[in-house]
Design a protein around this nucleic acid. Structure first.
Length: 877
DNA sequence: GTAGGGTTAG
């Protein structure tokens, strides 16, 4: 296709084709536009207007003098006002006999005060008026309101306004508009309603403002009523009103209604067109916005700075820099490129289109950089994940004497959060304190997010607790922060505290569900599920995924699967959660099937979904794991991370290929961590390879010298091989190190209450009953020959052996508690913080057979479903 | 007569 003419290009009904074509054929976009240079306002001759003022002033002077010196000062004051000499007018006013001053004189001074925005002088005039005892009648009162509004003292303006009971629509508009300016739209609307009750008819100014208010308040119904009302009042062809209506519909997301109003607008001006461009892009229809810009050009509509700015925003919205470059070229020819607003928008457009280098170029060529220029650049770096450069720029900005504002602060905090740089974040926090921005809601929310992402929930909580006002984002940030930082109890506590203070939304649900999942707090999770259903939050994919994950981790795999099937459009996360779920519950085959189905659905797996599938294979002892490992590297070019290697070592170890696993670790291109060696150590225990275990343990102890679990594991290996001398040596080694113990702990939720058990703890209310139940069980197990491993009992009872002997007994206590507290036949669901111990595993099998009830035990590694004397892990754990 | 509608950064 040949290059199209500028007109053809822009008015094309099928924009996409042209866009494609454009990208192929054009490098120099400027040729598509033929702008006429903008009229330079500054070059117009201002001396003529100055002469006009002088002439009228001398005329006033003549009039004053003809009236005579003996006359009062009213004329002279008015003369000074006309001259614009506020100082002299004020001096004369204050020096005059109060009784002589006329109402119209006050009015002219007030007018000038308003014009000069001098609240100080305005207040002095007001005080003179009060002293003089002149009646503040309607007209003077209105002037006072006008002055106070113009000088920015809305409180005082409102006080006078409420006292004068004016029926002049102009004055009402003044106040209504001022409330809208400070974004107190409710007050504007309330005054508008009052005005209507009083029978004061709105004019076009009123309607424009009120439409803006309803747009901002998201009140579609009321706005539509104004739409009908404005026709009734005869404003149906006022472009100012219709422009507001267009903006209102766009703001309310009613693109078609906006379009219709625009189509029927006969008297379109540049603002009408600009509103269309901005409205389209703010509704995610950047292409249409750019199309409107093209149409403006082809129709020869004069564009202004706002047009260019809006067009660039539309380009940024589409995300292709080629169109943006075309607008850039046009703007240069039309002489807009010196405008700081244009440059800032241009910079942002390039940065959002992924052309950071171009953005830097614009930034560097911008002589007078405003805070917006710096902030856009910082945000650009942060967006690309180049946090360090963002932070560097932040300090450079300070050195250049530009003060950051709220936008800068939130952008830089975001950069610190992304790079996890707590120190820089704290520096920024110091700056925030010094500059008094600590009470700003946005700043606080960004601060909490930064601290949470940098892993310091204590700091986040400090900010949270000192916030003067919190919104839903503040709560969600904290709850989500606790969840992500593995502080599920704190998350649940805060969620409870939130009740009655702020209404939970779908994001809250997505933030709190992982906490329920991590604690296996099924009752709480179900409660939130109810909340999700009542509010229709299941439509939110984050919520749906979090719900599936919660049920997976609470042990209700079947329910998780039902919910998963109900998700209409499943994303990568949905699939990954389900695949991991199958894996955790020992359904390796199902995990593989789900993985294949996901790929058939055209969803590309990422490194996390590969961890899920590799984990599933290893936990079910499936050799297919190897083919997935290779597919990941060869087909998807994903470099294996420690987690992937750990799965492979686990798979080799479980399937008895211990020396292969050892060689595999040795050949890893990245440094193995304790988890990897630990996986092999587990294998050594399963296959009773003491020799290898000793070699492996050396690595493990070197990498994680303080992790008790690994010492216990090695001790178990020795004990099972009846190497008591080695057990003793190990004990000595541990004694020298003075290890912190990580106590085994299990919990079971009954009627929503979480009951926690620690090994050896007999302070539970049912402790006696639990003890005797376990005694009876033990005896019965012996009787039926269900007790394969009595080796633990041989160990001498001192501290180390006690831990070995008692290891995992907390789950036994929890299971017994479940048997005593739950009705017969009801599934017992127990969660443990460490891996389940072998003895308890046998006990659980026995209980499931003897009492014919299912036991679902979640340990730190996976799920064990015990039924009829068998476990779903089939010995793999 | 005085005012109003669209305008860059999170």
């Amino acid at each position: 296709m040949a290059k199209s003419s500028p007109t053809l290009f822009w008015v094309s009904p099928n924009f996409y084709d042209y866009k494609r074509d454009f990208a192929k054929t054009s490098n120099d976009c400027s040729i598509f536009f033929q702008p006429s240079p903008r009229t330079n306002v500054l070059s117009s001759n201002s001396s003529s207007s100055f002469a006009l003022i002088q002439a009228s002033a001398s005329l006033a002077k003549t009039q004053t003098t003809t009236r005579g010196i003996a006359d009062n000062n009213n004329g002279e004051i008015s003369y000074f006002c006309e001259m614009g000499n506020l100082k002299n007018a004020m001096e004369l006013l204050c020096g005059s006999e109060k009784s002589e001053l006329e109402s119209r004189t006050y009015c002219s001074v007030l007018e000038l005060c308003a014009q000069r925005k001098s609240l100080r002088d305005g207040k002095r005039v007001h005080s003179v008026i009060r002293d003089s005892g002149v009646e503040v009648d309607g007209y003077l009162g209105e002037k006072l309101v006008f002055m106070y509004v113009n000088c920015g003292d809305l409180r005082e303006a409102r006080r006078i306004f409420d006292n004068i009971y004016t029926d002049r629509v102009f004055v009402w508009n003044l106040v209504i508009n001022e409330y809208a300016k400070i974004r107190n739209f409710r007050e504007s609307v309330s005054l508008f309603k009052k005005m209507q009750e009083l029978g004061i008819q709105a004019n076009s100014h009123t309607l424009s403002c009120v439409l803006k208010c309803f747009g901002a308040l998201g009140n579609l119904k009321e706005g539509e009523r104004i739409h009908a009302y404005l026709y009734k009042l005869g404003f149906g062809c006022y472009n100012t009103v219709l422009n507001s209506l267009v903006a209102f519909y766009f703001k309310s997301g009613r693109v078609e209604s906006a379009q219709k109003v625009f189509d029927e607008l006969t008297d379109r001006d540049v603002i009408s067109w600009n509103s269309m461009i901005s409205g389209y892009s703010s509704n995610g229809l950047g292409e249409k916005g750019v199309g409107i810009f093209g149409k403006m050009l082809s129709l020869g509509v004069n564009v202004d700075l706002a047009t260019i700015v809006n067009a660039l925003v539309a380009c940024a919205n589409i995300g292709t820099h080629l169109l943006g470059r075309a607008v850039h070229a046009y703007a240069i020819k039309a002489c807009f490129d010196g405008e700081i607003m244009f440059r800032n928008t241009l910079l942002d457009m390039y940065s959002k289109c992924g052309e950071l280098d171009a953005a830097v170029q614009v930034f560097e060529k911008t002589g007078e950089r405003s805070v917006v220029s710096w902030t856009s650049m910082i945000a650009g770096y942060a967006r690309e994940g180049r946090s360090n450069e963002a932070i560097r720029l932040f300090y450079e900005m300070e050195r250049n004497g530009v003060s950051p504002d709220i936008f800068t602060i939130t952008s830089i905090l975001h950069a610190c959060a992304c790079s996890g740089s707590l120190e820089d974040g704290k520096d920024v926090h110091n700056y925030i304190r010094e500059s008094g921005m600590e009470s700003n809601l946005f700043v606080c929310n960004a601060l909490m997010d930064m601290y949470s992402k940098c892993g310091s929930m204590d700091d986040a909580n400090l900010v949270f607790s000192r916030m003067p006002a919190k919104d839903i984002i503040s709560w969600n940030t904290m709850i989500g922060g606790y969840s992500k930082n593995r502080l599920p109890n704190e998350a649940l506590k805060l969620f409870a505290e939130m009740q009655g203070k702020s209404k939970a939304d779908s994001i809250t649900a997505a933030c709190i569900l992982p906490a329920c999942a991590s604690l296996a707090a099924l009752a709480k999770g179900r409660e939130i599920h109810g909340h999700v259903l009542r509010n229709g939050y299941f439509q939110d994919r984050h919520v749906a995924n979090a719900l599936v994950d919660m049920y997976v981790k609470c042990g209700l795999l079947a329910l998780a699967q039902v919910l998963f099937d109900m998700i209409p459009v499943k994303d990568l996360i949905s699939w990954t959660v389900m695949i991991a779920g199958y894996g955790m519950h020992g359904f390796g085959r199902e995990a593989i099937a789900a993985f294949d189905e996901m790929r058939h659905a055209g969803i590309e797996p990422d490194e996390v979904s590969f961890i899920s599938i590799l984990y599933a294979c290893s936990h079910s002892g499936l050799d297919e794991g190897w083919s997935f490992f290779n597919v990941m590297r060869n087909e998807y070019s994903i470099e294996p991370m420690l987690e992937h290697y750990a799965c492979m070592v686990d798979l080799l170890s479980r399937t008895g290929n211990l020396s292969k696993a050892y060689r595999f670790i040795r050949k890893m291109p990245i440094e193995p961590d304790a988890t990897i060696w630990g996986a092999l150590l587990c294998g050594c225990r399963t296959y009773h390879d003491v020799k290898l275990a000793e070699r492996v343990a050396e690595h493990v102890f070197e990498l994680e010298p303080d992790n008790t679990g690994y010492y216990v594991l090695l001790a178990n290996i020795y004990a099972e091989a009846e190497k008591w001398e080695e057990v003793r040596k190990l004990r000595e080694k541990i004694g020298r190190r003075g290890l912190k113990k990580n106590p085994g702990c299990s919990w079971i939720e009954i009627k929503g209450k979480v009951n926690i058990f620690v090994a050896g703890d007999d302070s539970q209310p049912l402790a006696k009953k639990i003890e005797s139940l376990l005694k009876r069980l033990r005896a019965k197990m012996k009787e039926e020959g269900f007790y394969p491993n009595m080796k633990y009992a041989l160990i001498n009872a001192d501290e180390m052996e006690k831990e070995v002997a008692l290891c995992g007994h907390s789950e036994k206590l929890a299971m017994a508690f479940g048997m005593l507290s739950l009705p017969p036949g009801k599934t017992i669901r127990v969660t443990k913080n460490l891996r389940v111990c072998g003895d308890c595993h046998e006990t659980a099998k026995f209980i499931s057979k003897m009492s014919s009830r299912e036991i679902v035990l979640r340990d730190s590694n996976r799920f064990h479903h015990f039924k009829d004397g068998h476990c779903s892990c089939r010995g793999f754990w």
